[in-house]
Simulated assay, not measured.
Amino acid sequence: MKEVGRKVNVVLRMQILKNGLPGKVSIAVPSGYKSINDAAIAAAKKWKFEPAKDNEGRPIVCLTILTIPFTVE
C-alpha cells in the first residue's frame, strides 16, 4: 500500500472544562482518513488537562486547538 508510512495531522477544536477534562471535541482540520479522525477524537476525550485560569487564579472553561500527528500503517 502506497500510503503506509505517510504522516498526517488531525487538528482538533477542544473545549477544556474547569476540572481539566475535555468538553466538546470536534475536527477543525481533518486528516483525510475517517478512522484517524475518529481515533484522535476518542483519544483526546480520555485526556486530562491543566485548566485555564482567570486573573484571580480560578479555573475557567476555555477553547483550544490541538494538532495530533499520526503515521499511516
Results as ranks from 00 to 15, higher is better:
1 M>V: 06
3 E>W: 01
4 V>N: 02
5 G>A: 03
5 G>D: 00
6 R>V: 02
6 R>A: 07
6 R>F: 00
7 K>G: 04
7 K>V: 15
8 V>N: 05
9 N>Q: 01
10 V>S: 04
11 V>M: 07
12 L>E: 14
12 L>C: 15
13 R>T: 07
14 M>W: 07
14 M>G: 10
14 M>T: 12
17 L>V: 11
17 L>N: 14
19 N>A: 08
20 G>F: 05
21 L>T: 10
21 L>W: 06
22 P>C: 07
22 P>F: 09
24 K>C: 04
26 S>H: 01
26 S>I: 10
26 S>G: 10
27 I>A: 00
29 V>Q: 04
30 P>S: 11
30 P>V: 10
31 S>T: 02
31 S>V: 03
31 S>H: 00
32 G>N: 02
32 G>T: 00
33 Y>C: 00
33 Y>M: 01
34 K>I: 10
36 I>E: 09
36 I>F: 07
36 I>G: 09
37 N>R: 01
38 D>R: 05
39 A>V: 03
40 A>I: 05
41 I>N: 00
42 A>P: 04
42 A>W: 03
43 A>K: 12
43 A>S: 09
44 A>V: 12
44 A>Q: 12
44 A>F: 10
45 K>Y: 06
46 K>G: 02
46 K>F: 00
47 W>S: 02
47 W>E: 09
48 K>A: 06
49 F>P: 02
49 F>I: 02
49 F>K: 05
49 F>W: 09
51 P>M: 09
51 P>I: 11
53 K>F: 03
53 K>E: 06
54 D>K: 15
56 E>Q: 11
56 E>D: 14
56 E>N: 13
56 E>M: 09
57 G>S: 09
57 G>T: 08
57 G>P: 09
58 R>P: 00
58 R>H: 07
58 R>W: 08
59 P>C: 08
59 P>Y: 05
59 P>L: 10
60 I>D: 02
60 I>L: 07
61 V>Q: 13
61 V>K: 13
61 V>I: 15
62 C>M: 06
62 C>H: 07
62 C>I: 09
62 C>K: 08
63 L>P: 07
63 L>W: 11
63 L>S: 14
63 L>R: 14
64 T>A: 12
64 T>Y: 00
64 T>M: 08
65 I>R: 15
66 L>I: 15
67 T>E: 15
67 T>R: 11
68 I>V: 15
69 P>M: 10
70 F>C: 13
70 F>S: 12
70 F>R: 13
71 T>P: 09
72 V>N: 15
72 V>H: 14
72 V>E: 15
73 E>H: 15
